[in-house]
Design a protein around this nucleic acid. Structure first.
Length: 212
DNA sequence: CCCCAGATTATCT
DNA sequence: GATAATCTGGGGA
C-alpha cells in the first residue's frame, strides 16, 4: 500500500472545481533519458461530463476517450487538426469523464529541452502558449494518453499553494454551451490574471468547402 | 499590429 | 466522407 499522491484530493474533484487548484501548479514530465521539462500552468479549460456538448466524451466512451472516464490523476492526450497533440489532466471520480485541457503555461525547468522541441517558438513566452504548443514542449503524445501521474514517475504534479480568487479570471469556452445543451455558456476557461503566457483565444476557423 | 489560408490525419458518422 | 478543444508563416495596414 502506498500513500495517495499529494494531488489525489484535488484531482478527485470535477474539472471545473479542480481548475482553481491546478492553476499555478507545475506539471513535470520526464524523458527516458532523464530530461525533464516542468511547466507552471497558467490557463486551463474544463470539459466535464457526458452532458457537456463540447467534450469528447459527449457521445459516450470510445477507445480514444476511455482515459477521461477513469479516476482523476492521469493524462488524456488527443490528436487534432492532423498534426497536433493536446493534453489534459483527468479529474473527477471513476466513470465521470471530466478533464482539464492544459491550454498554456510557463516553462520553469528544462528550458533548453523545451526550446529544442519547439523550434518554431519566437520567444520563451511562446514555448507553451497554447495547448498544442504546451504538449509539444513537454514531449507528450498519444502514447501518454491514460498515463497515471506518479511521484517521481514520467509525469507528476507539484501542487502549488492555492491561488486567491482575485488572481484568477474566467471566461467562456468558445462556441460551446454548457451541460444540458440549453444554450447556457459556462465560464469554464480559467487563467491567471496578468500572465504573459496565457494563450490567444481565437475560435477555430471552420474550414469552408471550396466551391467549384 | 491584424487577418488569412494551408498544413495533414485519427477518429467517428 | 467530414470534422477537428490548432499552429504557423505570409501579406497587408
Amino acid at each position: 500500500m502506498s500513500a495517495p499522491p499529494p494531488w489525489a484530493q484535488l484531482l478527485a474533484l470535477p474539472a471545473e472545481e479542480a481548475a482553481l487548484g491546478l492553476l499555478g501548479s507545475t506539471l513535470v514530465v520526464r524523458d527516458d533519458d532523464g530530461a525533464e521539462v516542468a511547466v507552471r500552468l497558467t490557463e486551463v479549460e474544463a470539459y466535464s461530463g457526458e452532458l457537456d456538448p463540447g467534450s469528447h466524451a459527449y457521445r459516450g466512451r470510445t477507445e480514444r476517450t476511455a482515459p477521461m472516464f477513469r479516476p482523476g490523476g492521469r493524462l488524456y492526450v488527443y490528436f487534432t487538426y492532423g498534426m497536433h497533440w493536446c493534453s489534459n489532466i483527468v479529474c473527477g471520480e471513476d466513470g465521470t469523464a471530466s478533464a482539464l485541457l492544459l491550454r498554456a503555461g510557463q516553462i520553469v525547468r528544462g528550458l533548453d529541452v523545451a526550446r529544442a522541441r519547439r523550434p518554431a517558438a519566437k520567444s520563451d513566452r511562446d514555448l507553451a502558449r497554447g495547448p498544442a504548443r504546451l504538449a509539444q514542449a513537454l514531449g507528450l503524445t498519444g502514447a501518454d494518453s491514460g498515463l497515471e501521474l506518479t511521484v517521481g514517475g514520467r509525469a507528476e504534479l507539484e501542487v502549488a499553494e492555492p491561488v486567491t480568487p482575485g488572481q484568477v479570471r474566467t471566461g467562456p469556452r468558445v462556441g460551446v454551451t454548457g451541460p444540458g445543451g440549453d444554450g447556457t455558456v459556462f465560464p469554464w476557461r480559467f487563467w491567471l490574471d496578468g500572465e504573459p503566457t496565457v494563450s490567444d483565444y481565437r475560435p477555430g476557423v471552420r474550414r469552408t468547402r471550396r466551391g467549384p
